[in-house]
Write a protein that binds this DNA or RNA. Structure first.
Lengths: 229, 229
DNA sequence: ACAAAAGTGTTGTCCATACACCCATGG
DNA sequence: CCATGGGTGTATGGACAACACTTTTGT
């Protein structure tokens, strides 16, 4: 490839993925023990370096796949961190992604072998570099985004009950919701399909399973936004 | 500085700023004629390369200042574009920022000398590389963000009338609003201070000037969001 | 039978919309 | 004196929070 920009300084480019899961009523994050210096052995968000002919998106997909074995994970770019001193090991820019995965589907062998483990949001270990900022950034973004485009489903199994979804929302926003109103509101969006099957694990009566219907898109108007358009 | 990452491939890092202004009832973008190959002479978003010891934020500030002479511009990072073929001149990652500036304050000499000019949103020239994507990304982001955190003021002069603000919103969302309701809604947020002065340019009666009170922050709850928290 | 979760119905309040109406003033 | 944009008041409907209520079924 030609290069018109020979004189420009170049930078290492990392991709860090904040991986969210939902398990047992709590939002969790997947973190790993670093295998590389510096800060070898400390906890960090999962990351890697951008390869020569790769897009950032593809790098994020590769990194998540290498750790979890999953391919169809909800991934979105968040922010690029660039403080010259953010990584004591060298000048590295890092583009952060967040990932939402169904915690019942990932490859436990793989994550185990890479020394990765899940942490609840309020029980996080201390992290290297600016990874705490990345995490705050990711959490805040998900909270915001979920208000106008429900992405919570990505954290639940294919089939889930309304109560499960409510627990997820409650964990995400750190507050409880009235279950009658939650149910009505969520269903009013018309994004869920009720299945015939019931979940009998949590109640005697049983709760219907639902699945998200990806063909259906929420209408902008039905989410109350700053201005009603 | 030490470098633990000698073996990693490195990349040129650009910063591109989508600069918005508001003039004569229309949102406008500041674009420049490229002085460098490739695509010398074509229109593009204003950009530059990240320097060795610079953060992306500082690079964006520098780039906007160099073009407009302004220092206190509202700037926010948007997205990092990374397609290996996005720039035919070499492998360059580009982090996009959007900037909102008060169009009555910028340095016209400077922009003139750099062959920059303002374009209305619906009269844009064709742009190089992925700059059209950057622009779409910026516009969409501002529309979204403005719903829950009003940033429109940043595009208006220090003193402005409610009607001016409404025209800005109408231009931003491409639709008209009922002026009675617009006025009530905007004022209900309590973010504006009414001045004693009136603008007599647009009506005989005159319209009060307002200024945004930066000490006052909108309460999350007062913006109707996806879930009321 | 009853506990406990699932799910429905009802009501008051708030708020966005629509629109009628008054105000001020330059020509 | 009236046209024009600035600004206020009010009626209506829809959405949501609160909460009372019914359904189902395993023990």
């Amino acid at each position: 490839m030609k290069n018109f920009y020979q004189k420009q300084h170049t930078f290492c480019q990392a991709v860090d993925c904040v991986i969210f899961g939902f398990d047992n009523g709590a939002i969790k994050l997947l973190l790993i023990h670093r295998k590389l210096e510096p800060y070898k052995g400390k906890w960090s968000v999962i990351g890697g370096f951008l390869q020569k002919k790769e897009t950032l998106d593809n790098a994020a997909i590769r990194i998540v796949h290498d750790l979890t074995g999953l391919n169809n994970v909800f991934l979105e770019q968040l922010h690029t961190f660039s403080d010259p001193n953010r990584d004591p090991g060298g000048r590295v820019l890092s583009t952060t992604y967040f990932a939402l995965l169904k915690i019942n589907e990932y490859d436990k062998e793989k994550t185990k072998s890479k020394n990765a483990d899940w942490f609840e949001l309020n029980k996080l270990p201390s992290l290297i570099f600016d990874h705490t900022d990345m995490l705050k950034c990711a959490l805040k973004h998900i909270q915001q985004k979920n208000r106008y485009q429900p992405i919570g489903f990505e954290l639940l199994p294919e089939k889930f009950t309304i109560t499960q979804l409510q627990k997820l929302y409650e964990s995400l926003y750190g507050k409880t919701f009235d279950s009658a109103n939650f149910r009505k509101k969520i269903l009013s969006y018309g994004l869920l399909n009720r299945l015939d099957e019931k979940d009998k694990n949590h109640s005697k009566r049983g709760a219907f399973y639902y699945c998200s219907d990806k063909k259906k898109q929420i209408k902008q108007t039905s989410a109350n936004l700053f201005f009603h358009m």
